[in-house]
Amino acid sequence: MDRNTTAGLVPKILLIEDNPEMAENISTILQLAGYHVVHKSNGKSGIDQVKQDPPDLILCDIMMPELDGYGVAHILNSSPDTAYIPFIFLTAKADLSDFRKGMSLGADDYITKPFDDVELLRVIEMRLKKNELLKTTFTKKPQDLQTFFNKARELKEFKKLSENRPVRAFKKKDIIFMEGQIPNDLYFIEQGKIKTYKVNYEGKELITGFYNEGEFLGYVPLLEDKPYNESAVALEDVRVSLVPKTDFLTLIYSSKDVARKFITMLSNNLEEMEKRLLDLAYQSIRQRVASALIKMNENALKLREDAIISVARKDMANIVGTALESLNRTLSDFKDESLIEMSGKGIRVLNQQKLERLLRY
């Protein structure tokens, strides 16, 4: 297994653990796997170590004296200089509320003790690969799009991404897509120029945009799940690479960090457009979770008056079509907004009318 980073260096892992026996055991496992390990026995010294020599990944126990793991996560995630470092909690606490608290503080993962050696190494490897993807700078060249997909496919959430994307050629004045058509693909312009336009009731053409080599086209209708509200035509001979809708939605909804990276590519680093796309993606997740809760609540009400939705989170994530962490984050938001109540028995809908209202906006 290749343990080299893009810089050709052995990944450095900071282990913050106050139990000497546990720390020695974990350090041995990681060193045998080819990682460089630095151990600190408390949260304060761990933070000092990060500031002096930032690691590639942090493993941190929660229950520690002086400064616990939550405090470490909060301090590191509050600083732009350290917030990017993958952070994994090691804990004997397995309560769902503890998990939510850790993730809300910026943790990337949560491993419960006792854990399997293979599980630990698998989680670390995936987090390092994801961080490498997030740190990579991608240009507007077609080969960079392929590189992005190749790196994404190394992560478990994206293994189903297409290995190769179809390429289509259009002649000058060819129609790429028409207003009212249902979108099935995201377009990446490898060569040529494309114009988008609308036609008013008098038959007059209103130009809405121009797109050049290295730009993406058609992502807003895919995010909104609506027909195209404009048409697109080739201004010269054009070659486009097609990203299937399933690939596009997987990249947007399976991981918040990867979605942000992908959206940065889509928006050409335009802050206003990036914010709009992130808002669209987030709102869509809220709507889909709300829709799933409404349907499951109606089914539960048929069985008993005091309905409890007892579907496993993993199954609910599959129903919604999003990653488990995205589902948990959205459910937590709904709980804070008093839309639902969560307990060990399941989920109870408190305000279905407000959930239904989410579907209209």
Rank of each mutant, 00 (worst) to 15 (best):
64 M>T: 07
57 L>E: 05
43 G>Q: 00
127 R>V: 06
23 A>R: 03
36 H>D: 05
146 Q>N: 12
67 L>R: 04
135 K>M: 14
33 A>N: 10
129 K>Y: 05
33 A>T: 05
71 G>R: 09
13 I>V: 15
47 I>H: 03
82 T>W: 09
40 K>G: 00
107 A>P: 08
69 G>D: 02
137 T>F: 13
28 T>L: 15
41 S>N: 15
82 T>P: 06
94 A>C: 04
101 K>G: 00
69 G>E: 04
85 I>P: 08
77 N>E: 07
20 P>R: 12
143 Q>I: 15
116 D>L: 08
96 L>D: 07
108 D>H: 13
29 I>Y: 09
34 G>N: 02
124 I>S: 09
142 P>K: 07
79 S>G: 05
46 G>F: 02
13 I>T: 09
119 E>N: 06
94 A>E: 11
119 E>I: 13
80 P>K: 11
130 K>P: 00
45 S>D: 13
37 V>K: 01
135 K>T: 13
144 D>I: 01
75 I>A: 11
25 N>E: 07
41 S>M: 15
81 D>R: 06
115 F>C: 05
84 Y>Q: 09
146 Q>D: 14
130 K>I: 00
80 P>H: 11
48 D>R: 12
88 I>D: 04
97 S>P: 00
78 S>C: 11
69 G>Y: 03
74 H>S: 13
85 I>H: 03
41 S>Q: 15
74 H>G: 00
39 H>N: 09
34 G>L: 03
62 I>M: 12
145 L>H: 02
12 K>I: 05
100 R>P: 02
42 N>S: 08
11 P>N: 08
67 L>S: 00
41 S>E: 14
118 V>C: 02
130 K>V: 00
135 K>S: 15
105 L>Q: 04
104 S>P: 02
127 R>Q: 15
17 E>H: 15
29 I>T: 10
19 N>K: 12
27 S>H: 07
114 P>A: 07
123 V>D: 00
81 D>T: 01
145 L>R: 01
89 F>S: 06
18 D>L: 15
112 T>G: 09
138 F>K: 04
35 Y>L: 10
118 V>R: 12
24 E>C: 06
118 V>Q: 13
38 V>I: 13
43 G>H: 00
19 N>Q: 14
104 S>L: 11
135 K>F: 14
90 L>K: 04
82 T>C: 06
142 P>S: 08
96 L>W: 11
105 L>T: 04
53 D>K: 10
83 A>H: 12
133 L>G: 08
108 D>P: 04
141 K>G: 01
132 E>I: 11
105 L>R: 06
143 Q>W: 15
104 S>Y: 04
23 A>I: 11
61 D>C: 13
55 P>T: 08
61 D>F: 11
106 G>S: 03
119 E>K: 07
138 F>S: 01
96 L>R: 12
